[in-house]
Design a protein around this nucleic acid. Structure first.
Lengths: 228, 228
DNA sequence: GCTGGCAATATCGTCAGACGATTTCGGTTG
DNA sequence: CAACCGAAATCGTCTGACGATATTGCCAGC
């Protein structure tokens, strides 16, 4: 339908069925479907997302497609250039390291404030739930559902921090971590999460911040090993 | 035209003329006009932004209005609730302090990386220009143009850091600082900027980061004085 | 054969109008 | 006076269209 294709259009086929998701809004469904497609490899960095194609693939109008693209752009998943459309952002190893430096600072702040304010809100139970959920993936292979559980874990932590600015920004950072799957043995990874969680639940702000930074530092080291 | 008004609709009149700005896209003009209106007090926190009103005020279609609202939401200027429209975000003193903690971390990182990478790119001249521009406001009263100059200063610094993640996020933080005008004597404020600039230009990463944190810490102190 | 320029095409930004969904408001009723 | 219910307001989405801009392919000239 379109030109032979652009720089990158490898998978060729539709990324996912019209998404049998819940009764969310149409643009939410499209966003989620694209994120899942991204994780599953249906979209690759640099690939262009053309509005007419997305209309056909998801069976929605251009209004909805454009709304979805705006949201994905706000989350840093795609780049939109005027009159040149949207494309999946690609992260070089150096950019991934830079992004992790940012994530590390903010997650560290979230962890610290969460520990400081652990007693104030009714969100403690939600955080414990998110942690329990995350743990169920300990021995499971990396999957999109694990990524979602991890995001919910960070979201619960951020909510615990009661810092609305963090709540606004952190979601837009988590998404990056969808793409690079950091191949690390389950227990090794989970020890970081566990340290963070325990420090937060016990109200030890300094330990919580430290655990978050160590965690991000470890991931950064993995990136350097994997592609440097 | 609408109901007698909502929780807050004080200024009543249109915030600004259709904006005789440059040849940017329509949604860009609307975004800028709303930001200016926000600074000039035409919009107050909590005020609702109703799409039909904005269509009339700026003479654009609803597509454009919605596009603009999405951008303002991504920048944290407004909040959009499903089926209930957009409203100017209000920041309590506590939330302002939280937001400043976030800004402080990120600007600190930007300053540090800018100092580390000062020699690499061709952006040094742009940063010096932005600093020179900012200095012209040293003895001028606080104005929207000053805010824009300050934003360009931070943007230049962020570009200098060559950290694309920061480049993506920092703009969405600057906007907050439009609203609370921190009443502080010119020279006192500018000494912070000067310290940051000199540290960056001389490549002193630690000093640059420290200067940025001190600057944000000072602002936070002003907030606590002003409304605590 | 290669390069520059121009026309055709693809795609985007914006506009106009419409309809159902959801919330909110105001009046009626018990 | 409080709960209920209908009307209005507003939003989310759809359809179709037009000009603006970028990209592509073709052709002429060197």
């Amino acid at each position: 339908m379109r030109k032979p294709a652009d720089a990158a259009t490898p998978p060729a086929s539709a990324p996912a069925p019209p998404a049998p998701q819940r009764g969310d809004s149409a643009s939410t469904r499209v966003v989620r479907a694209i994120l899942r497609g991204l994780y599953e490899g249906a979209y690759v960095p640099g690939q262009r997302l053309v509005e007419p194609d997305l209309m056909a693939q998801f069976g929605v109008s251009r209004s909805t497609v454009r709304e979805s693209l705006k949201r994905l752009e706000a989350d840093g998943v795609i780049e939109v250039l005027p009159y040149r459309g949207a494309q999946i952002r690609s992260l070089s190893p150096g950019e991934a390291r830079d992004a992790l430096a940012v994530v590390g600072l903010l997650v560290g702040l979230a962890a610290r404030q969460a520990a400081e304010r652990i007693g104030e809100g009714p969100d403690r139970a939600a955080f414990e739930d998110a942690w329990a959920q995350l743990q169920t993936f300990q021995d499971a292979p990396e999957s999109f559902d694990f990524v979602r559980a991890r995001n919910r874990f960070y979201q619960a932590m951020t909510r615990l921090s009661q810092n609305r600015e963090l709540a606004r920004i952190v979601p837009s950072l988590q998404v990056h971590m969808i793409r690079r799957s950091y191949k690390v043995a389950g227990p090794a990874r989970f020890s970081s999460y566990q340290a963070m969680t325990e420090a937060i639940l016990s109200g030890d702000a300094a330990a919580a911040e430290e655990a978050a930074r160590v965690h991000m530092h470890n991931i950064a080291a993995l990136i350097d090993d994997g592609a440097a």
